[in-house]
């Protein structure tokens, strides 16, 4: 009986002692936390994607609070949450349209592969290292080995039927992790509300661009010359659309001799259909 009492006493006293030490320590070592940090954190996406450049969502919330990051730092959270964070921080709600990622390539099988069969690691970084600047004929385009698919936390990028990465514009939150992972650097951000896209990043001159891919931009400048808004410029043999100026008139879609510029809302697809190479 005495044993039981001893056991109870010793453990009870030990527990009480440690409890006391801990409660004293929690007062001594108290770190004051700004309640706003918790509030900001609740408005972030919570995926810990790292797209903002800070270690996790907690790091991003701390940076927003410290003023080193803008209230829009978390792209995946969207404009409503950015507005909520701005309110917490006592700022005006930011204006700005939703952005999404876009793959500047539509080649894939239409660009052709150098080898009958690639037996290396299924990864674009590895495919890039194959002698002669990668496995693809085109040395600028998407290799289609899915490195971007693996890093996407939102299931918003997939390899399509042509063997090219394609962004699901509805799911994309523009965290740009795919752009960081892509060894070819063909993924860029663009406004969600666009109609006309130009999926090519080939800087080669017309003839070789044509030889390497059936859906390449040859830099003919027909779109640049015909654009009524002056929104298209050809630089380094590849056209780019300035979405600040683009009015979605569709002139370039009609003029492009390669049928490369497309209206994404016309048939719901980015991919133009090109029958023969």
């Amino acid at each position: 009986m005495l044993n039981v009492i001893y056991a109870l006493l010793v453990l009870g006293i030990l527990g009480a002692l440690f409890g006391l030490v801990l409660s004293v320590a929690s007062k001594i070592f108290e770190v004051k936390k700004d309640p706003r940090e918790e509030a900001i954190l609740s408005h972030l996406a919570g995926a810990n994607c790292g797209g903002c450049g800070f270690p996790g969502c907690g790091g991003c919330a701390a940076a927003i609070l410290a003023g080193t990051a803008p209230v829009t730092a978390c792209a995946p959270a969207g404009p409503e949450n950015a507005a909520a964070i701005a309110k917490i921080m006592g700022q005006e709600a930011p204006t700005g349209e939703r952005q999404v990622a876009f793959v500047r390539c539509n080649g894939g099988e239409r660009a052709g592969h150098k080898f009958e069969r690639y037996v290396g690691i299924e990864d674009c970084v590895a495919a890039m290292k194959v002698a002669g600047n990668g496995t693809l004929d085109c040395s600028f385009g998407c290799l289609g080995r899915g490195t971007c698919v693996k890093v996407c936390k939102f299931d918003a990028i997939h390899i399509n039927a042509h063997g090219v990465a394609e962004v699901d514009r509805e799911k994309c939150t523009c965290c740009m992790q795919c752009a960081a992972a892509c060894p070819r650097h063909v993924i860029v951000s663009m406004p969600y509300a666009v109609d006309v896209v130009l999926p090519c990043a080939n800087h080669e001159k017309g003839a070789s661009a044509k030889a390497h891919c059936a859906v390449s931009c040859i830099g003919c400048k027909l779109c640049e010359r015909n654009c009524p808004a002056g929104a298209i410029t050809v630089n380094n043999n590849v056209a780019r659309i300035d979405y600040d100026k683009c009015t979605s008139c569709g002139t370039c879609v009609a003029k492009c001799p390669r049928k490369l510029i497309v209206d994404i809302h016309a048939d719901g697809k980015v991919a133009p259909v090109v029958a023969d190479k």
Partner: peptide, 20 residues
């Protein structure tokens, strides 16, 4: 039992100490 008590409190204490 006693060691688990000691370890749990110790880790908690170290955590508070480091945070500060």
């Amino acid at each position: 039992v006693a060691f688990i008590l000691v370890i749990a409190s110790l880790v908690q204490f170290i955590e508070m100490f480091l945070q500060k």
